[in-house]
């Protein structure tokens, strides 16, 4: 694996909360254009890992390198501007705004106070919003208040908000939680579509869904790397079986 192809290199990453190591000396490498799924039992440190990468939690030790930029010391908004997008576990959208405005606010321009004051809804913005809305199955809901969307649609909207930013690395925390079977199907199609040309890290519990999307799977357990490889290899791994079924 040539180093130039890496989108993300996590090395020796550790975070400790009052002595408890939620993520412990973790190494993780994500290739460019790879869709990586991170699984693991509750408390394995999956969400904490995403928090560490996007700067929401500060690492106690170790490094996170994204395109040769060290992320561990950058403020959150700079990490986003560098090209890392992150979706939260519970749909995190602006209920008070319309679907259109939710997407528009996520458009990566006019991010300073003055820039926001002079920001205009140009045809470029409108076009992008429509294109993304179509992608996330919401093109006919653009003028609705976001609070009126169903749970699944809110999840899609948040993915759409990330798409507006065109991140090179996209991190999704349980994107199909609370979705119906058909919604899961559509989300898998969506993820496979948008994974083209960018790297993704997805946290998921639903194994069928993981099988549908994953290029490679990483299993975390108690903050440490337990196994890594293809879905079949991981499912056949005795350590993984032990962790999931053993107790």
């Amino acid at each position: 694996m040539a180093k130039a192809e890496l989108a993300l290199a996590v090395e020796g990453l550790t975070v400790s909360f009052d002595g408890f190591k939620a993520v412990d000396d973790l190494n993780l490498y994500v290739d460019q254009n790879e869709l990586r799924v991170v699984i693991g039992p509750n408390g394995a440190g999956k969400t904490t890992l995403l928090d560490l990468i996007c700067g929401r939690t500060r690492a106690s030790a170790g490094s996170v390198k994204f395109k040769d930029k060290e992320l561990t010391r950058m403020p959150e908004h700079q990490i986003v501007r560098a090209g890392v997008g992150r979706k939260f576990q519970t749909p995190s959208i602006y209920e008070n705004l319309t679907v259109f405005e939710n997407l528009e606010v996520s458009f990566p321009r006019g991010r300073t106070v003055f820039g926001a004051m002079t920001f205009r809804r140009s045809s470029e913005v409108i076009e992008r919003v429509h294109r993304v809305a179509e992608e996330i199955y919401l093109e006919d809901r653009l003028e609705n208040a976001a609070e009126l969307l169903s749970h699944g649609q809110k999840q899609w909207l948040e993915i759409g908000m990330l798409l507006m930013q065109e991140p090179e690395l996209m991190m999704l925390d349980e994107p199909v939680a609370g979705m119906s079977v058909t919604e899961r199907q559509k989300t898998a199609e969506l993820l496979n579509r948008i994974a083209v040309g960018r790297s993704m890290i997805v946290i998921e519990h639903d194994m069928e869904f993981v099988e549908n999307i994953a290029h490679k799977v990483t299993v975390l357990h108690q903050g440490k790397l337990l196994a890594e490889g293809s879905m079949e290899a991981v499912q056949a791994n005795p350590k993984v079986i032990e962790v999931y079924l053993g107790h």
Binding site: R56, H77, Y94, S106
Partner: peptide, 11 residues
């Protein structure tokens, strides 16, 4: 949703 705004690249 302050976090969402922050993680959309705004200070």
């Amino acid at each position: 949703k302050e976090e969402r705004v922050r993680f959309s690249g705004y200070d």
